[in-house]
Amino acid sequence: MRDFHRQFDLEKLKNSEFFNSPVDVNRCDANCLLSDLKDMTYIRKVENKLALEKKKGNIKGPVHLGVGQEAIPVGIAKNISNKDYVFGAHRSHSHILSLATDLRKFFSEILGRSEGLSKGMGGSMHLIDKKCGFYGSVPIVAGTIPIALGAALAAKIQENKSIAVSYFGDGASEEGVFHESLNLSNILNCPILFVCENNLFSSHMFISERQPLSSIARFALANDINFKIIDGNNICEVNNAANELINWIRKSSKPAFIEAVTYRWYGHVDWREDIDVGVNRSEKDLKNWKKRDPIQRLINGLKSKDLFDEERYIELSNNLDSEISIAWDTAVQDPYPNAKESNNFVFK
């Protein structure tokens, strides 16, 4: 198992001082990368908006921000369609945003308003938009892993060619049901992509305080599941791994596993960078990880090949800012759910 770790450069991937060079853009289509840059910038801006509004006290519930992790869902999203079944967890804004959900409804949900994606019944931690292929996110760690597996089982029984995508973090691999699900997915031949966003932290605990080895893909190996370990802050790597494995899943009706190593810039919950659920974070690590920014590294890569137009990016950035503020200003006007009506949601 230690050889396995050396083989995949895991110690390096974990180390904040490596993997900060520009993305090698030759490995992907240039137009595709420009669209990825837009999508990642959009997600970053939406989540930073949430951080700001949370800080101002305008959002009452908890928000688990994934700033710094944008490359992963953007790379996955373009390889699936709204006929597939995507499930998330507590840190899933980026997952649903990558599927082009309605931004005003997204904000409305986070504000607990009845126009929201979950009719104001879920908030940030319970998001759904089946039209986009997003079938639900919940904050019980590993809770949706078997559920996504069941969606894949349904696709297999119905022979409808859909696949399931299950997003989770490294902490989820410490839950028993994760292991049951990997085993079951292979034994039942379920078309599912497991995506582990290994951001090295579970709440305030670093991975070495929780697991004897830091790779989560070792559990895929243990269950004979096809896997890839990638730099999750390199959009080209995500694109290529997602493309290859998703094609393979559709062809074989078998599970596959991506472990994308990444880092979240904010603490476990809400807007503070310096404190993680009461525990101070290493300033040096955070600084280093910001050098591994998936957006800046893509910009650097594009620049090195003269593919980056600074003016156009500024214009894009301004357009996104105004789109986001219009959506927010609309959402804050939305009404709250009605107590009597919401009781009807208990049963169909």
Binding site: Y85, Y135, G143, P146, A151, A154, Q158, S181, L184
Partner: peptide
């Protein structure tokens, strides 16, 4: 859990 997931689809 898988049965829950299948029932949603």
């Amino acid at each position: 859990g898988a049965a829950v997931g299948a029932s949603l689809c």
